[in-house]
Each structure stands twice: as C-alpha cells, then as structure tokens.
Nucleic acid binder design. Structure first.
Lengths: 229, 229
DNA sequence: GGTTTGCCGATTGTCTACAAATTACTGATT
DNA sequence: AATCAGTAATTTGTAGACAATCGGCAAACC
C-alpha cells in the first residue's frame, strides 16, 4: 500500500462508484487474487474513506460477478474456473455472431475506418512484440464492435462477461502465444463486416470467439502441466 | 406502509440481500413506480433497519439495472422505454434460439415431463382466464428452459433481462390479450425440443420471442392510443 | 412583471461507534 | 505430538450522528 491509489474520478461520479472501479482494477490487475478475502477496513484506509462506501462498492461488484460474499465472513474475489470460462465462451459465441450480423447491416463508413485504425495499432503492437499493449487494443476493438451495434444491454452484457473472462486468465496462465494469429482473424472480421454480408460477418466473429476459446484451452493445458492446479 | 413487509428471508442470506429482493418486489409489483424517487430513510424505517443496508441494496439494484442513481439526489426507479424493451428483445431472440439448440441436444426425459406439466398448468390457467396466474407459470416455464441448459451465466443474464422487461410492462400497459396464442407456441417449443432437432427447436424459441415482441408492440400501440404517453 | 438571491426544510453522503460473529492464539490435556 | 477447549483479537454488520447538497419558496432587485 505504498501509494494511496489514484481515485481521481471522484468528482465525475459518486464515491462508491469510483471505489468500485478502483477495486475492479485491483482485481483485474492481479493485486487482489482470486479466492482472496477482501478486508473492508484496509481498503477504506487505502482510499482515505470509511467502510460505508467500500461496502457499497463491494455489493455492486458482487452483483456484477467479480466478488462473492459470505454472511458474516466478508467478501472474496471470485475465482472463475475453466468450466465457467467455457460457459462464458458459449455465450460470447452467440453474442458475437449476433454482433457480426447486425454490423454487416448497419455499420457506417466512418466506423469502418475506426476499426481499421485499431487493426493498424494492433499490427504495430505485434511488430513490437508488445503483448500487453496488444491486449489493451484487442479489448477496445471488441468493445467498439459491440458498441457499434447500438444496443446498450448488449454492450453491458458483453462487458460483464469480458470482465469475468479476464478474471479467469488471472487464475494462473500467462496467455499462450499466437496473438499474431488472432490479429489475422481481426482483419477477416473487418473485411467480412465491410462486405455487408450478415452471414459471413456473423460467421467470422463466431469463429474468432471459438478460436479464442481454443487458445484459452491450450493455454490452460499448458499451465496445467506447469503448475499443480 | 400499513404492514411492515415480510423480510423473513433474513436468516438465509444477508440483510442487504434480503432488502434488495424486497425492494425488487416493490418495484416489480408496481408499488414503486418507474421514475419515482426512492427515499432511503422511509425504506429503512419500513424494514426496521438503518439506512446502511438499504443503501447497499440500492447499489446492487443499480448494478443490475432496476434503479438509477443521481449524485446527491438519490436513487430512482428506472423507467424502461419501448426502445429499450426492443433492445432487450433483440438479445432475447438470440439467447432463446441458443437455448433451443442446446436443449434439443441435451435435454433429459424427466426434464421434458416437467416442461409438459408446465404446459398443463398453463392450459388450466387459460381455461380459468387467470391472466396473472398464467404469467407466473409462463415466467417459470421460460426460466426453467434456460436453466436446463446448465449455463449459469446464461441463466443470470436471462433473468436480468427478463426483470427489465417486466419493468417496461409496468410503464403503462395492461398486457394486450392473446395469451392462449402464446400457450400454443409453448407447446410447439416443447415438441420441437423433444424432436431433438436443434435447428427446429432454435427456430421455435426464436419465433416465440419474436412473436412476444410483436405482442408487446401491439399492446404498446393500444396503450398509446388510450393514454397520453 | 420577471429574474435573481438568500434562506429553510428535506434528503443524501459519509463517518464514528458499538454489538455480533468469526478467526487466531494459547495452553492444558490425552 | 496432536487435539481440543477457552479466550483474545480481528473483522464484519448495523445503528446513529453529523456535514454537505439539493429543491423550493419568498423577498429583493432590476
């Protein structure tokens, strides 16, 4: 707890909301590990606040699935198993196909150029072998795709699932390689959308999700042979 | 605020969670109307507790979309517009098709008999012209279908969307008739699943969702011609 | 007359305090 | 040495109190 942690958002939104996103960061960045117990007082101290707002943030995080609460025992960082990750991928395949179909029908020219700029950025990241940078853009790319559909519930659902999937990754694998492959798929996706063929675009996105799941499985197997559990 | 409201769940789960479901009921039953401001102190008094747990419950409800919060102004019951309901139906069509495909592959004999008992119950409700009873069973029927897939995230997502859809109904329409039609569709769905044909089952469920949306639209138009907005 | 300014009540947001429960620890006992 | 009971120390859950903010109303001003 060297630095008191940013929390600059404060003015924009409410304090509990700011704490919520901050705790979320701590989880997704791995400072709070899956299964670990969350100490309210410590977090309150860290954010220079009292336990009230922290508790509110934890309730919100519980509702969105990042945290699990046990009565009189406190909150724990949810640990997402491979099986659960698989469940999430089942959903993502379905949603992604829907995204592809919709986008083929309704995407605008300027949106396509924006997608292409993401592709270029990812190419750069690949060339530099900048894995973390690549993943950042990759996330933004997919979220942008979903947002372009213009369905707020879809976006919300997608983001929720994505976060849980990120949590699984934390469980103990370092991301099995082959991210240049992933970028080739991204280009296929954009081309398919640009072709305005719903069938093709839907298939492209679904395939990408499916391949992504396969990569996860490979990484899981690799990690499984390295570490005990 | 005649009766102090049940809240018996208390022992099973945490107090904030109990309050959350209780407020949820108040919303879905229409005692708290869409757009209405939620007074924390009043709710706390009603549940014989302090504002802390109530605030935690409201945070959770905000995260799951039933409530909207404005800084320094409090929480309001979310009002779901027709446009948003449409968004939700877009998603439900996709998810329901997925449910159909999956169930055609994996459903068990005993699960089928359970579904058929729902059909019978609904027939009874139709015969009695018991609208509210029918809707209760209808909800349970669809939730059961989704649960049979065995994907917890799917179930959670589906329930979330269903709740929001229920909120739209509250906005001012009394459910345009034709619920015997809906029940005929339910039978088609069960038959399609029992046939073990994923394509057919998927189509049946998707069609049902689509028709359900159409019914909503008709009801909305009817309500629109009755009331100002 | 219409707009602005300043107060007042009501409500939210946060903090501190305390009770209840759980966990960790100590020491005796088998 | 291991186990179990009993006690101390954390930690959670809730209550109550106080400051900050918002909305409305009336008086003052242009």
């Amino acid at each position: 707890m060297a630095n008191p942690t940013s929390l600059q958002i404060l003015l924009e939104t409410s304090l509990p909301a700011a704490i919520q996103t901050e705790i979320e960061k701590l989880i997704l960045v791995g400072e709070l590990c899956p299964g670990q117990r969350i100490n309210e007082a410590l977090l309150a101290e860290r954010f220079h606040t009292s336990r009230g707002p922290v508790r509110e943030a934890l309730r919100a995080l519980e509702e969105c699935g990042l945290v699990r609460a046990e009565r009189n025992r406190g909150s724990f960082v949810r640990s997402v198993s491979l099986g659960e990750a698989d469940e999430i991928y089942d959903l993502r395949e379905v949603l992604d196909e829907f995204v592809g179909r919709k986008l083929a029908e309704c995407i605008l020219a300027e949106q396509l150029t924006q997608l292409r700029s993401f592709l270029a950025e990812m190419d750069v990241a690949v060339a530099r072998k900048d894995l973390t940078g690549y993943h950042q853009i990759n996330l933004r790319f997919h979220e942008t795709l979903v947002d372009f559909v213009g369905n707020s519930r879809l976006s919300a659902t997608y983001r929720r699932l994505t976060k849980e999937l990120l949590m699984y990754r934390l469980h103990g694998l370092k991301e099995g390689g082959g991210f240049s492959v992933s970028n080739a798929e991204h280009k296929t996706i954009v081309k398919a959308i640009a072709s305005r063929d719903p069938e093709r675009a839907g298939r492209a996105l679904r395939t990408h999700a499916s391949d992504s799941r396969t990569r996860m499985h490979r990484a899981a197997i690799a990690a499984g042979s390295r570490v005990a559990r």
